[in-house]
Computed example of a mutant assay.
Amino acid sequence: MDSDIIAGWVAEEILPWEGLVRNWLRRRWGHAVEVEDVLQEAYCRIASLQSIDHIANGKAYFFTTVQSLVLDSLRRAKTMGARELTEMDESCVLDEA
């Protein structure tokens, strides 16, 4: 699909909801994620779409995309935290031998 068509669609169907989505992100997830990074990644994902024909509601699609990004970020952070616990530095462990 033509990138100009997607850009026009984003301007009409996504941009009007940015303030609402930003406020929702700050209230709901602001303590756990970088709001501006999530929004930027959402725009990147939407801009990289090959087609927008499958999207019936731009607002709902934007919210769903943002929520998916947040949940992915939280899962990655949880996995990284668990990995850090299992890879503790053994240099501070006393060897009784």
Rank of each mutant, 00 (worst) to 15 (best):
R76I: 08
M1S: 13
K78Q: 10
A47H: 07
D95M: 02
D37M: 09
E13Y: 03
G19T: 10
G30L: 04
R75W: 11
R22G: 00
L85K: 11
V33M: 02
E41P: 02
G81P: 09
R22I: 02
V70G: 07
R45W: 05
A47R: 11
R22T: 04
L20C: 04
W24P: 04
M80A: 14
E87Y: 04
W24N: 10
L71W: 06
L69N: 01
D4F: 02
R76N: 09
S48E: 11
E36C: 03
A82P: 07
E41F: 03
E18Y: 05
K78H: 05
E96K: 03
G8E: 13
R26T: 11
E12I: 07
M88P: 01
S91T: 12
L69E: 01
K59T: 05
V21Y: 00
G58L: 01
C92Q: 07
L94M: 15
D4K: 04
V38E: 03
R45H: 13
A47Y: 13
I52Y: 07
M88S: 14
S73C: 13
D53R: 03
E13I: 02
G19Y: 11
A7N: 11
E96H: 10
R28N: 09
M1N: 08
R22H: 10
F63E: 13
S48N: 10
A56R: 11
E41D: 15
V21R: 01
H54R: 15
T86N: 08
F62G: 00
L20D: 10
R28V: 15
L15C: 07
S3I: 13
R27G: 08
Q40M: 11
A56P: 00
S3D: 09
G30P: 03
W24Q: 07
I6Q: 08
E18R: 15
G8D: 08
V21P: 01
L74T: 05
E34G: 05
W24Y: 08
L20H: 04
A60K: 14
V33H: 01
Q50N: 09
L20Q: 08
S73M: 05
D95L: 09
E84P: 05
D4P: 01
E96M: 08
E13H: 11
C92G: 12
L39A: 01
I52M: 14
D89H: 03
H31E: 15
L71D: 10
E36L: 04
W24V: 06
Q50K: 10
A7C: 06
V35K: 01
E90M: 14
S91P: 00
A32S: 11
V21K: 00
T64A: 15
D95C: 02
V10D: 08
Y43E: 05
D37E: 15
T65I: 12
Y43D: 02
Y61G: 03
M88E: 14
S68R: 15
V33Q: 00
T86A: 14
